[in-house]
Design a protein around this nucleic acid. Sequence first.
DNA 1: CTGAAAGCGCTAACAA
DNA 2: TTGTTAGCGCTTTCAG
Lengths: 330, 330
Amino acid sequence: MSATIKDIARICKVSEGTVDRALNARPGISKKTKEYILNVAKELNYTPNHLARGLAKGRSMTLGVILFDVRNPYFAQLMNAIEVKARELGYVVFPIFTHSDTQNERKALEHFKTRQVDGIIMFSVQSGHEFEKELLDLKIPIVTIGNRISGGWTYVGINERESMKDAVKHVVSQGYEEIIYICPPLTRRGEVNLYTLEERLAGCREGLSEMGKKEPLVIMDSDYIKAISQIDLESQPKKAVVCPADIYALEVLNHYKKNKIRVPEQIGLMGFDDIDTLKYISPRLCSVRYPVSEIGITAVNRLLEEINGNHNKHLNVLLLQHQIVTGESL
Amino acid sequence: MSATIKDIARICKVSEGTVDRALNARPGISKKTKEYILNVAKELNYTPNHLARGLAKGRSMTLGVILFDVRNPYFAQLMNAIEVKARELGYVVFPIFTHSDTQNERKALEHFKTRQVDGIIMFSVQSGHEFEKELLDLKIPIVTIGNRISGGWTYVGINERESMKDAVKHVVSQGYEEIIYICPPLTRRGEVNLYTLEERLAGCREGLSEMGKKEPLVIMDSDYIKAISQIDLESQPKKAVVCPADIYALEVLNHYKKNKIRVPEQIGLMGFDDIDTLKYISPRLCSVRYPVSEIGITAVNRLLEEINGNHNKHLNVLLLQHQIVTGESL
DNA sequence: CTGAAAGCGCTAACAA
DNA sequence: TTGTTAGCGCTTTCAG
């Protein structure tokens, strides 16, 4: 196989310890022997064995990443940012895509434990006491993104409630009086993490209330297209559909286009996430933008701080700024 | 830290070898002691250490994956399929996104070597003899996807030339006489892999020639939008823009929309890849569809065969079927 | 059926 | 400055 430290030691007629000192720039070695060893190592085309190193040091230099589905552009952006940042810092990532299945998430954590990852970045589906106990038992630093779990773990994201509140206020400021809020269920199995969903809905309610408008019509049906098609668009006052994700908004928009319903003339539409795809679609969707890549990068940085034990324990909620993106759909 | 085989052995008053036999369902152990050991292991919440196992067995049970950019939906789909399939088979993946930078690709391969991955799935930017030599030196099974390298490595993909030929023939069959083919350069650094690009262009030429049409107008400018805006759309005969990727076609379409040029009335448009995003865009783009996820799955299966040495050495080009997707843009 | 021991490649503590 | 040695946790071979 590949050359090992032992091989180099034998050839150079020095001890393995000395080779280690040369290869890893450790102190206590003469320049001469160091250069000699390095030369031989290069000739042998030596590459260190990370498995062995990890075993010896108790550090695998790998991070586990749990996301729903990388085919969703939002997760793809996160994935990209995390992978690039982690590698920049000498780590390599194991991604696992759960497709928001709680069983997959459980197995993923198990996987990471046996794989000896040094830390985990997780967008979780699960929640609840039992789940938190499992996480604690892992004894691995974890940073959560997207879905918050509890104060026990660092959370990197945006202020979900405020951002939706701002979105709704923007809609109202454009003259819309009635809000239809789309909020389909994520999945049915297990105890599911509803943090983001609930916060955004609460933000919607609060926003309307603060603007003195009436309660939103909340559509919780998974077939929300059918539900909205039953709404009377002719009656006053002006109505707008608000979605907690652009992908829902795009489905709604497709439905309206198919039925020759004009947006925003007959109904307003507001999305959330400001995904890249929007630039190809007209009318340009109003949405809420936030620095997705920054979330990934911040999560990696924080996770490494936690791994190295030099993090601020009193500050474990890291919120980034959101902003309203105006478009042609309101 | 976590419980180890040694701990279990001590508690059960047996040897480590016996514990190993129980834990890994190896033969030569009585049912009684096995059950006992398994119970103790469960109580201690034992989880195996994959680093140690990998080191001992010379198998890390990890695969390296090299892709351009997961934010591109095409790569995201590949990534998803590969990760899911690999995990199903007990492997875990290290993805590295090169952003089509040859330096990154080099470093990625280096990374994988030191990380002791058992195999690599690669969508390469590089090509050439020197590169091939590097790959050989790795002494790790490699399956290539997307960009073919040479007969030395398994390739999983579609027949690039035939698929573009079919695409062009379809365009011609819709009454278009003149083809504008978009073919922007990928990157400038290093010796770049142009396999796919060249094959598709060749397919375009062959298709036109076989249909008795004149040569395509090939736009090699990276600012292809500027280039197409100089084309006279009023003159006969009917013209169509053919793109070797939907993302180019979407940019072109955006340009036409902005300038109130009607597709397909004033000019036809053909894409390639049939990405998911298309379902949100009108007019529905004509494109070429092929089973992207299948490519990922096939690559994983083949790679494992190569790792285990039970692959068919005479068959190392695995081509999947493509199909023309008709839309409203022709 | 079970135990003992060597070894995977690297690190780290202690001697020399 | 260099060598020696004992691990890290698991697998594997050879005895018993």
